[in-house]
Design a binder for these strands. Structure first.
Lengths: 135, 135
DNA sequence: TTTTAGTTGTTGCAAAATGCAAGTACAAAT
DNA sequence: ATTTGTACTTGCATTTTGCAACAACTAAAA
């Protein structure tokens, strides 16, 4: 954690999350079941390797993600959400809702449709699911 | 609007909002009644003048803000939210809630307290207020 | 009229972050 | 022993950001 720009909670959040990549990694873990460096690397947005390492380090340092050796493959690491990371769910959902609303090229899929109908229910259900995976 | 990284709605949102400053400007307009270049410049986070101009141009280009000559002072511009900009309210509220929850130095003030108690009500009330100001 | 203050920028330059390509290290599989 | 998979590191060019100074315009004051 560097020095904060101010004590405004929005500013504090943006100090950590305010870039184009961090929340995409969170999305991958939260909604797409991705857990490893190579899975993140293969996301369609094509993050560079050095940026990915840098962001994973920061997210781990902020205790948003935790890193463990994979049980199946000892030369592999898996990243999981902490409760602090899981609590980013509403932000992710709102970004998805706004993005879908104002981009024609972003057709709403299953989750998007459900968010449009009952956002609160989606957040409730997903946070329940995440609760059982949190480290 | 540059080229998008993907059609994921979260990614699309971050293409526009994914930096440390844009959402702080939105915060200033949305929650602090700020409307002008000089007011944004004087926020405690101390944005640089070239960054501010750059962000205002982008936000105007994305039709999140609109720029008009001030009625009182013809050498002054005022920036207002469009409906697209006002629809960022839930994102701002969630960033505030998460930031306040995980930062000791961010004591929740009036709005923060109300968000903690009943987030949905706050969003409903504030979006009603914003609706009447939208350009 | 000249000056001063207020407002919204622009410009130049250094520092930091990002993007890209290649290389490294280590474990497991063949 | 070699290859494959996984997780990085490094070097370098490009882009963005941060900082400080300067500029253009308007309105009001002296």
């Amino acid at each position: 954690m560097d020095k904060k720009r101010s004590d405004c909670p929005i500013s504090c959040s943006l100090d950590i999350l305010g870039d184009k990549w961090s929340l995409l990694i969170i999305r991958d873990v939260m909604l797409r079941g991705k857990m490893s460096y190579s899975e993140f690397l293969n996301s369609e947005e094509r993050i560079a390797t050095n940026i990915l390492v840098s962001r994973l380090t920061i997210l781990e340092g902020e205790k948003i993600l935790v890193k463990d050796v994979s049980p199946e493959n000892k030369s592999k690491y898996i990243y999981s959400l902490t409760q602090k990371g899981a609590d980013l769910l509403p932000i992710i959902i709102e970004l998805m809702d706004w993005g879908a609303k104002y981009n024609k090229n972003c057709p709403r899929k299953e989750l998007g449709q459900r968010i449009k109908k009952d956002k609160a229910a989606v957040v409730r259900e997903l946070s329940e699911v995440l609760k059982h995976k949190v480290k």
